[in-house]
Write a protein that binds this DNA or RNA. Sequence first.
DNA 1: CTATTATATCATAATATTTACCAATATACT
DNA 2: AGTATATTGGTAAATATTATGATATAATAG
Lengths: 148, 148
Amino acid sequence: MKKDLEAYKESLKREGYKLTYQREAILNAIVENKDEHLSCEDIYNIVSKDCPEIGIATIYRTLQLFEKLDIVYKLNFDDGYSRYELNHGTGDHHHHHLICLGCGKVIEVKLDLLDSLEKEIEKDGMFKIVDHNVKFYGYCSECDEAKE
Amino acid sequence: MKKDLEAYKESLKREGYKLTYQREAILNAIVENKDEHLSCEDIYNIVSKDCPEIGIATIYRTLQLFEKLDIVYKLNFDDGYSRYELNHGTGDHHHHHLICLGCGKVIEVKLDLLDSLEKEIEKDGMFKIVDHNVKFYGYCSECDEAKE
DNA sequence: CTATTATATCATAATATTTACCAATATACT
DNA sequence: AGTATATTGGTAAATATTATGATATAATAG
């Protein structure tokens, strides 16, 4: 985990970007909440504790940069703002998300199992797939019970 | 196709909503472009020809209503605005979309093939799936060739 | 270790999409 | 046809995100 953090900082420097206090704080916030799907506002609130004078524009700019450097991955759960998660990826595809229509909770699914579907799609040579984004909508066990 | 249109109008009346000229025009625009993924602005432009005094707010309101009545389905291709497509669904799942990272073109995939994955996810009874949203990112044949 | 230079930041204005508001209007029903 | 009520149009407001420009800071050279 600590190693990850250094690796991320390395990739910043390697690409010629400066390692500022703000970027470090944002990176920390994301790494320390790697199980969450933080929005810009979430990150702003977390980072503001360590760095009260940070501006929201810096959060947006930095997340854009991190996305370009493949440090984070942008998610959209149709709740009005973009969310970000740490990109563990070694080029691998992303896991899927289950979105509860009852409480809005988001659950991660480690399974991939899309290979056969992707092969089928690529079979005729009309499209080359490099990534996917899969969301399932439904009800978590608590909300499903509550509906009875 | 004509039958569809009447069926949609029926479901409006059945739910107690009035069949206005504007709603009819918007419905027509969507049905006549059922292969497109129209944004609000697109629909506004199309409908304005028949109905020049229509306001953009009416388009937004009507699409919201149509979505609630399962007449249309809202799509998000990460291009800044929501898009809509006609919901042929008899409760069936939606087809998938291939989004070209080169030219932005969106291609539809009729295959579903997610049943085994959904069964696997639902196996432990922790989540009940009612819908899914699947996007594949990659390159269409033209853009793939252009990259060489 | 300090000076230099270019990049990054902060604060705020600007943009863009979508929603809220309200007076005027049109639809469905008697 | 007349009436009650939902709907519309125009515009203001809200929301998330991006652009701008002066100031501050990080990396590098001396």
